[in-house]
Structure formats: structure tokens, C-alpha cells
Design a protein around this nucleic acid. Sequence first.
DNA 1: CGGAATCCACAACGATACTG
DNA 2: CAGTATCGTTGTGGATTCCG
Lengths: 117, 117
Amino acid sequence: MESSVKHEIKSKCLVELFIETLGSKWKILIIWHLRNSPLRFTDLQKKMHNVNSNTLTFNLRELENQKIITRTIFPEIPPRVEYALTEHGKALFPVFDAIRVWGAEYLESEGMTMDVC
Amino acid sequence: MESSVKHEIKSKCLVELFIETLGSKWKILIIWHLRNSPLRFTDLQKKMHNVNSNTLTFNLRELENQKIITRTIFPEIPPRVEYALTEHGKALFPVFDAIRVWGAEYLESEGMTMDVC
DNA sequence: CGGAATCCACAACGATACTG
DNA sequence: CAGTATCGTTGTGGATTCCG
């Protein structure tokens, strides 16, 4: 798994920036699940249908480097680590709103059903 | 390359629907480039930094099946095929707007520069 | 021009085991 | 608990060639 965090100004526009920064489906999902409150590693993993810890760790590290989430270690036994959105992360809320509006319309017109969240 | 178009209602929420439907970076880019006007295969390919025709074809077919774009064949010599957004495709404009607002803020605060489009 | 077919490299992802 | 290490499999995208 190679890092996708290499903004070599090869991006040509804002949409491409978004794709390069958050293009992985995991990243979008992580941010979405952190929308309401910080979560621990294991909680996040469960919410994401038990994604492999390898994959989850990798994406969390990248999002941290991209300053979209923070990682806070609580020096307890057993260890506790919480992930939370930064302002950059929270700034994605309007994107999610737009996505959900689109999704709802698309669902309805295609006659599909789905959980609402 | 296997099709990702299989809405087996395994999706749990609208954001996951979006990821499954448009999760490929190529699809988002295709839709973005079609925002203003229909484009021919080759024009699209050029705009997308000369992406492989294999990859482009595959994603175009999926988007067509998903009713997000249309494919129109003009019976001419040499052949002409144009791709255009459906209403479902155009309904993604607000998502792009939100993405670009986010991208602009992110860019600025990270001290990066980029073409505006 | 707009692809389809084939082959290939490598990146992504999962399973499993292990550790501070 | 929150990872890391290792391995194996699958998937994705590029290069190339060919065709109606």
C-alpha cells in the first residue's frame, strides 16, 4: 500500500485535489463515521464492517498526515486511542449533505431501498 | 476489472451508496469533465491525462448502466460517439460545488496552489 | 474514431499471527 | 486495546495490438 499523499502540484483542479486526497473509499467512510463524535480504533473498525486493521491503520495515518483527523492517545491500561475530525474534516460536512441529497433522489428514482443515515 | 454495479442492498446508508456507485476516481472525473457539454471518447481521454482506453471504456459503460451518463452514436464516417450527463449526472453538481468549496479552503490553509476549474 | 482483446506489473486488501 | 509483520490473493490500470 503506497501513500497517496504526494501533492506534487500535478493536480490540475480542485476536483482532482479532492480525488487525490480522499479518493480512497475508506477515507470517506472513516470521516463519515467520525461525524458525530470521536471514535476508538476498534469502534471504527466495527462500524466499517470489520475492515482489516492493516487497511484501517494505513488510512488513518494518511488522514492524520493530511490534517483531516487527529489521533489522541490516552495513557491508560488498556490503551485508548481516539480519532476525531479536525476543522478540515468537519469542513467536509457540506459535501456529505450534497452526497446524501443526491443519494436519496437516486435511490428513489431507481426504486431501491436503503437504511437512512 | 469487475463491475462494481451490484446494488445488492448490502449498502447500509446513502454515503455508502455513493461510494459504491461512484467510488472509482475515474467516474467522478468523467462526470466532472462532462459538466459543461457532451464529449467524445477521445476528447474525454485527453482531458483525463490520456487514461488508458480500457479503463475509460469500462467506467463509461458502468456509468451508462447506472443511468448517470448517456452514450449517443452518430452514424458517420469516421464514427462519432458522444457522452453526456443524464439528470442523475447533473444532480451531482451540488456535490461538485461542495467539493470545490472544501478544496479551496484546504488548499489555502495548506499553502498550496492549483489551477482553478 | 472508438473501442475490444490480451498480457502484465503492481497496488490494494484480507487472513493470520504476534506484541507493548 | 491498538496496532505491526508477514503472506497470499485479488483487483486495477497501463502498454500494446488489432479491428469495424
